[in-house]
Simulated scan of single mutants.
Amino acid sequence: MAAESQGAASEDFAERQARNRRLSTLIVFLFICLFLLIGSAVDYLYFDAFTPSALKLPVATLTAFTMATLISLMSYYQGSALVLGSVGAEALDLKLPEHRELRNIVTEMALASGSPMPKIYVVFDPAPNAFATGRDEFHSAICVTTGLLALCSREETQGVIAHEVAHIRNNDILLMTLVSVLLGGIALLSDWASRSFYSSRTRDRAVGKSALLVVPAFLLILLSPLISRLLAMAVSRQREYLADATGVEFTRNPLGLAKALEKLRDAAMPFQGASRGTAHLFFVNPLRRRVDDREGHLADLLSTHPPIARRIMLLYQMTGAGR
Rank of each mutant, 00 (worst) to 15 (best):
R203M: 08
G185S: 04
A206N: 07
R201M: 12
V215M: 06
S200V: 09
L212P: 06
Y198T: 07
G208A: 08
S200R: 15
R195S: 05
L212F: 15
S196T: 11
R203P: 02
G184W: 04
S194T: 14
R195V: 03
V214H: 01
F197Y: 15
A211N: 06
A206P: 00
A187P: 07
Y198F: 15
R201D: 13
V215H: 05
A193I: 02
A193S: 09
W192K: 15
I186E: 02
P216L: 04
R201Y: 09
T202N: 13
A206T: 14
R201E: 12
A187M: 07
G184Q: 08
R195E: 08
D204W: 09
S196A: 15
G208Q: 09
A187L: 13
S194E: 13
V215L: 12
W192Q: 15
L189E: 02
L213R: 05
A206K: 09
A187T: 02
A211W: 07
R203T: 09
L213F: 08
R205N: 11
S194A: 12
L213W: 09
G208L: 08
V215A: 08
S190Q: 03
S196Y: 11
S190M: 02
A193P: 00
R201N: 06
S200Y: 14
V181W: 00
L189H: 00
G208K: 08
G208F: 04
V207Y: 13
L182C: 07
S190C: 00
S196E: 14
G184F: 05
L189R: 02
S196W: 12
A217Y: 10
V207T: 14
V214A: 07
S190W: 00
V207R: 14
D204P: 07
A211E: 10
P216W: 00
A193T: 01
I186P: 03
G184L: 05
A211H: 06
S190R: 00
F197C: 13
S210G: 11
L183D: 03
T202Y: 10
S190P: 00
R195N: 03
R201W: 06
A217T: 10
L188P: 08
L189G: 00
A217W: 09
L183G: 10
V207H: 14
P216N: 05
P216K: 04
F197N: 12
S196D: 15
F197H: 09
S199Y: 12
A217L: 11
G208C: 09
S210H: 12
S199K: 11
L189P: 00
V181N: 05
D204A: 13
V181D: 03
S199M: 10
S199L: 13
R203H: 06
R195W: 04
L188N: 03
K209T: 01
P216R: 05
S200L: 15
V215I: 14
L212M: 13
G208T: 10
G184M: 08
R195G: 06
A211Y: 10
L189M: 07
S196P: 10
G184C: 11
